[in-house]
Design a protein around this nucleic acid. Structure first.
Lengths: 196, 196
DNA sequence: TGAACTGTACCGTCTGGTCGGTTTATACAG
DNA sequence: CTGTATAAACCGACCAGACGGTACAGTTCA
């Protein structure tokens, strides 16, 4: 029950949390230093002491989000025994799971703010590039894996902008379809069709 | 050689063009009324005479973009004879074709600005919803069509944020894979695999 | 005591929007 | 053809608020 000692790292986390909440609730356009400070329970001075500029704050947010994403992915890696299309499955699982949570909405708002500072997106860019490479490299059927990964990515992206026309039922079907796609690949000409 | 008579609609288009250019070049963050006015060759007063507010301007930009997309789709409709998975084919074709052009970059920048005014995205939302319905309704294999459409959508979305890890070669392969997917569907368990 | 940290008042700039005035085109009367 | 009236189109100075950032004086802890 230590009187919540305000350490620097402590404040940093509180600030980052506050910023995420704000972005998530009212969008990146309203992400002002004043708002963040208020939300985090300190003054603008204190905020700027921890993050010398708004860009620094944004960069830290990106950093943290990527870290969380990676951690989540790592956690899933151990659960997936099957080696087949490992990376693709991973990516899809991560997307389908993580992306429906709060992180999703944060990412949504962030993109808007980040769009103006292309540099801030660099970490994200390289993360995606890595994922893509892994998928191409470790999949038995890269074509199917690429398409599957893209489809899942789109799901997230559309949600992100609240643009998704995909109903929950659709979602289930898509998930199943993606799994089938990864497991069995794309059918060739002259094969049977069962469900119609 | 009439001294380009300044009609209202004339100015409107000039303004819309200018705004698009700016968004495309420096991003939505720099889309100020002053900049647009200067670019369009009139004063801020004149600009605000044509569009009573910045939101009105943005809304008009969205409107025009949607209109262009629809026109493009209509144009393609006549070229695609095959009835199979018509809607999905159309949508994908439009995306693959149009989205690689200038409209793409404009859309990119726009999203950032639009993210703050969710209402401005309503037209886009309904457009997408319509497309989605059409795809589900008119496809022989809705599952495959949905996945295909999503994959193409992701391609556009990633490009939009300059986040795409997809190389030109990848793109070609994906395009082919999507076509196969639409034509032949997803393979089921216990079928031959030829390319490995 | 000193370093880490916080609070607050303030500044400069940017930007959307207002507003009164000016130009330009058109219609029409004489 | 000329003068006049009218309204649309346009101009640009100005304003108010928001926002990022600074300065600096306190405060707290080791």
């Amino acid at each position: 029950m230590i009187p919540p000692r305000r350490t620097r790292s402590n404040s940093r986390d509180r600030i980052l949390d506050a910023a995420s909440e704000i972005v998530c609730e009212v969008g990146a356009g309203k992400l002002t230093l004043d708002a963040v400070a208020q939300r985090a329970g300190l003054s603008k001075g204190g905020l700027l002491y921890n993050f010398p500029s708004k860009d620094a704050l944004l960069a830290a947010m990106v950093e943290r989000m990527i870290g969380e994403g990676r951690a989540e992915k790592e956690a899933l890696r151990s659960q997936i025994a099957e080696r087949r299309n490992l990376e693709a499955r991973l990516a899809c699982a991560v997307s389908l799971k993580v992306r429906s949570g709060a992180a999703q909405e944060v990412a949504s708002g962030m993109l808007a703010a980040l769009a103006e500072n292309p540099g801030l997106l660099d970490p994200v860019r390289s993360l995606i590039a890595d994922e893509w490479q892994a998928i191409k490299a470790t999949s038995e059927d890269p074509d199917a894996a690429m398409v599957a990964w893209l489809a899942v990515e789109a799901l997230g992206s559309l949600d992100m902008h609240s643009l998704s026309p995909v109903s929950p039922q659709d979602r289930v079907r898509i998930e199943a379809a993606v799994k089938r796609l990864l497991d069995f690949g794309i059918r060739e000409a002259g094969e049977s069709e069962e469900t119609r």
